[in-house]
Design a protein around this nucleic acid. Sequence first.
DNA 1: CTATATGCAAACCATTTGCATTGAG
DNA 2: CTCAATGCAAATGGTTTGCATATAG
Lengths: 142, 142
Amino acid sequence: MDAVELLRQLKGKGVRFTPQRQAILEFLLETKSHPTAEEIFQHVKEKFPGVSLGTIYNTLNMLKEHRHILELSYGDTSSRFDGNPENHYHVVCSNCGKVVDYDRPLLHLEQEASDATGFRIDGHRLEFYGLCPDCRKRQPVH
Amino acid sequence: MDAVELLRQLKGKGVRFTPQRQAILEFLLETKSHPTAEEIFQHVKEKFPGVSLGTIYNTLNMLKEHRHILELSYGDTSSRFDGNPENHYHVVCSNCGKVVDYDRPLLHLEQEASDATGFRIDGHRLEFYGLCPDCRKRQPVH
DNA sequence: CTATATGCAAACCATTTGCATTGAG
DNA sequence: CTCAATGCAAATGGTTTGCATATAG
């Protein structure tokens, strides 16, 4: 589903279709880089020099509420955003912060976790930490 | 291993043993609540009314660097700290923010993740999200 | 028209930093 | 004595909020 189609659907929920939102969502859907709000801002500014960071955050929060994107917050300073809203796993570089998808079948652990803890489990998150191939080369020992 | 013993060991690494540090570490080792820095601050203030938040953060960062505690940062506003430095899994309440240990054997997925992504994997993190028993009662539908 | 979104600036708030003073070793 | 740790206050930085203006519907 592309950005235009997705934003058209949202119109039914009282959400307005603006060119800034289209640009933000298009970027999130086409990139695999899991960008930060700042990076999205820099990218959108190329087409809309007057756009503000506030608009980026406004749109990201709206898309998050409607479950069309994922916010990834690792211990880092800033969150990253993922245009793929389905649960999937990530590998995070401890050195450069890069986030890469790790596509594998989902684990079925939620029933077991629910039984063990008494929580009603709605989802889970799995991330791996390490050095990406690039950082591995640059600091072979560490 | 208790707080005093642990801090004595750290002396060999140029770390000073102060009563504030002892109180912070003792609290982290005895509680199962995964407290925030602010909560640790409030607790330590009972014994040391003059302690400052800066000292809490200073100590937490020192303990983290020496891998005696874990910093848990979920999307929340503030981090939580865990006196158990071994990798283990957590269940987080989406409503009240409570974090509970979920003790189960570790998953052996790192080799597979490394093969699939080219990263040198050093660790992984697994968290479950949902409603804790208390919040479940209070908002049965959601 | 009218209400939501935008752009801008100020506010927030968890965490960090700077610095004079204290105190551990 | 000496240097790391403390307490305090100011600074930082990502994110949110407030408000006047612009614009989607």
